[in-house]
Design a protein around this nucleic acid. Structure first.
Lengths: 175, 175
DNA sequence: AGGAAATCGGACTCACTAAGTCCTGATTCT
DNA sequence: AGAATCAGGACTTAGTGAGTCCGATTTCCT
């Protein structure tokens, strides 16, 4: 089952939340409260996103996080790479020779590169703005909001089952 | 780092090998020897592929495995689903309502479905025949052949480092 | 100047699952 | 009948994702 990690899942939720109100900075406790994600986790991911250049931070009392760039300049592939370290299935990429012993006679190379490229382009074609776009900021603020479902998942009676974190991470049955 | 499991990686190697000589059945020890993959693992994966309908098996002394269908009727998405159980990143699929609490107000749904679809189509667009296609069967038989690189990887001085099995499983840096 | 409230960076534990092995039984050919 | 093969589990081990926590640093406010 190929799926993204919870960290990435959370990351999308956090970024989406921040993108909902451009320019406004939020700190970790605020984001944790709104998304119903555990604070240490939120903090960890925010730090990571800063290091990866997707967020900018401001320290101190009135500190917080905000998007490093406009939400329509950040696409899903970038977010995935920042959080997962990389995106897809094979190592056979044009840019990295020497990684694969089979390079010289590998017949699978071409098709896999095609697959990788298609996957990457699909991910690059979706911006954070689109992901957050239709959310009325009001809803996100008051609501269950963007990560509303997490409340239920988070408050369940100690249920460490294999429930995808936000419901984002999961699977695809053919179609 | 999103990547497929070794099991899937191995599965592709085995299927590609079988596709290289259509109609000819091979048993688990033969496949293990040619691909340099550990026999128990090979056996395990072959059994799985039979259960998933990609391979057909014949028991007994002259038993073995062969493709259940023509290699150009099997595509990568199918193989991935058979081995990974599922293919991609999100659970928000049209066919499965109720899986996600956020369904009603989820703004991320549309774009993620687009991503999922694109990924799936990329995978569905590559057939096993293409993956195996350009391999001269001769080479696969004598050669290092399709899984030749595994010899080196498998015979290394006890190195359980994070080396991708065949070099197939790995990552994509943007491009 | 000093305290409060943030972020930053890292080390750490725990649990789950992928990876791999092995054993027993069922089937088929010679 | 016997040998070779697939079938279907149970089982062990190692790696990593998930989550927590702490000390250090920076910044605002009084």
């Amino acid at each position: 089952m190929i799926r993204m990690t919870k960290q990435t899942d959370y990351g999308f939720v956090l970024l989406t939340r921040l993108a909902a109100e451009p320019g406004i900075a939020m700190n970790a406790p605020e984001l944790s409260a709104e998304t119903k994600l555990p604070l240490p986790m939120v903090s960890k991911i925010l730090k990571l996103l800063v290091r990866q250049g997707l967020l900018a931070s401001h320290r101190g009392v009135k500190g917080g996080y905000h998007l490093a760039r406009s939400a329509d300049e950040i696409h899903a592939a970038e977010i995935l790479r920042a959080l997962e370290g990389a995106v897809a299935l094979t190592v056979c990429i044009e840019g990295s020779p020497g990684e694969c012993d089979r390079e010289h006679f590998c017949t699978v190379r071409g098709p896999w590169q095609r697959i990788n490229k298609a996957v990457f382009e699909a991910l690059a074609g979706v911006t954070l703005a689109e992901l957050a776009g239709e959310t009325p900021p009001r809803l996100a603020q008051l609501g269950p909001g963007l990560a509303g479902a997490m409340a239920r998942l988070g408050s369940g009676p100690k249920s460490p089952e294999r429930v995808p974190a936000t419901g984002l991470a999961g699977r695809i049955e053919s179609h």
